[in-house]
Design a protein around this nucleic acid. Structure first.
Lengths: 230, 230
DNA sequence: AATCTATGACTGACTAGTCAGTCATAGTCA
DNA sequence: TGACTATGACTGACTAGTCAGTCATAGATT
């Protein structure tokens, strides 16, 4: 309410003046206002992602996000309504492009096993052991407290993934590659080891490293029968 | 964070000195003091469990735990050093009896499939969809921030579980019940759908209920071949 | 009475969110 | 082009509120 804008303004002015040249130096391309704003927003998202993954929602301090993003705390509130909606929006921002990429399925050439192996391979590279994998763990962790996040994740990722897997399984059954017909009723079984690998890497990799690739191969052998020699 | 302002050490020193004689002397009159203390402690554990599961570690308030346990806040500090060690101890307290019960395996009679089905059945009843299942999710959530919890959980639950499953799988292979020999290298595959079921119940049951029992049956069909008619 | 246990008001460290003020850039005019 | 104004992105000190942990006091037990 009552402000004392007298002396407090002085040091801030000095610091601001000294800080900006240093920063503009590291950002090589001369940027328009809109561009800079977008960059800052991206930096905040990036920093928030790291902090939320490392500490969880409640334990994350906005001051830390701001510091990591090289931004003042107030700036965060120019881009996001509050901590909670920042978290929710963050999940959307990070997940949407991943879904977009994975939805662009490879052309339906080759056997079903080849398709699924291609899928597993990109999942391995893009999710397991990466920050995106940590994000999955974060959603599992915070989901119950953020129903909107859990809903979004179910709608955009889980239900689509399950549907896609079911379609592949049904194709595999129709072609005689997959024997177990009931598998189409529980595509979760197909995906389960991949999810376990994600969680394992976050929690137990230090104790017992897991060769996720090899594990997925064994799992596919289980479903399709022994590996064919290509 | 945690301050150590001298006096806190005093009562603990007194108690340590009085502990051993007290036990031998007061074992017979079981009803009053020791019993009440144990009951209070149990109530605190119970309440803390609910709160931590519902809110996560950081967002849980000790005032709420105290209120739910019907106890004053100070009482909590008569039983636990601080919030953090309370959480760690809580996990131990809840998990140890479960491990103890599951480790008491049924006698090795019948087929390997029967053994594993018995195992799955009790897991279904005792973990999936119960508060213990939520505890598993809680560990996944808080594990990275509580290495000691993750370590403990790996040592007491995961490594033992994996070893037990591996032994069963090897037995199954030796008896010709299981065809896929590499499965013994990744017992995680055997357990993965059960874990997925636990997580699914917490996050997505509202959107798409999952018949965990039936899913596990299909999974075992996949590993052992079609169900035999008993 | 002496000793142990429980209480809950209290303290102080910490943090989400605010807002008056700053300044680089965009826009306008001569 | 050069000078002058307008804009709004950005800052960070500050406020109001929260909550882990403490301790003087009351109560129970032996």
């Amino acid at each position: 309410m009552t402000r004392k804008p007298t002396k407090a303004a002085l040091p801030s002015a000095i610091r601001a003046g000294a800080k900006d040249p240093a920063r503009s130096k590291e950002e090589a391309p001369a940027s328009s206002r809109a561009t800079r704003a977008a960059e800052r927003r991206a930096a905040i998202v990036e920093a928030a992602m790291d902090e939320f993954i490392a500490r969880g929602f409640a334990a994350t301090r906005l001051d830390d996000i701001a510091k990591r993003a090289g931004v003042a705390k107030g700036t965060i509130y120019l881009h996001f309504k509050d901590k909670e909606s920042m978290f929710e929006e963050l999940v959307r921002i990070v997940i949407v492009p991943v879904v977009a990429r994975l939805t662009a399925l490879p052309p339906p050439a080759g056997s079903v096993r080849d398709l699924i192996e291609a899928f597993a391979s990109s999942f391995l590279k893009e999710v397991i052991g990466t920050r995106r994998g940590d994000l999955v763990r974060l959603i599992v962790a915070e989901g119950p407290r953020f129903p909107s996040v859990a809903d979004f994740y179910y709608r955009e990722v889980v239900s689509r993934g399950i549907a896609a897997m079911r379609a592949l399984i049904e194709l595999g059954i129709a072609r005689g590659e997959i024997r177990e017909k009931d598998l189409a009723r529980y595509p979760q079984i197909l995906v389960a080891p991949a999810m376990i690998a994600v969680i394992w890497q976050s929690l137990f990799a230090r104790h017992a490293p897991l060769d996720a690739q090899e594990m997925l191969r064994v799992h596919l052998d289980l479903i399709f029968g022994e590996r064919r020699t290509t």
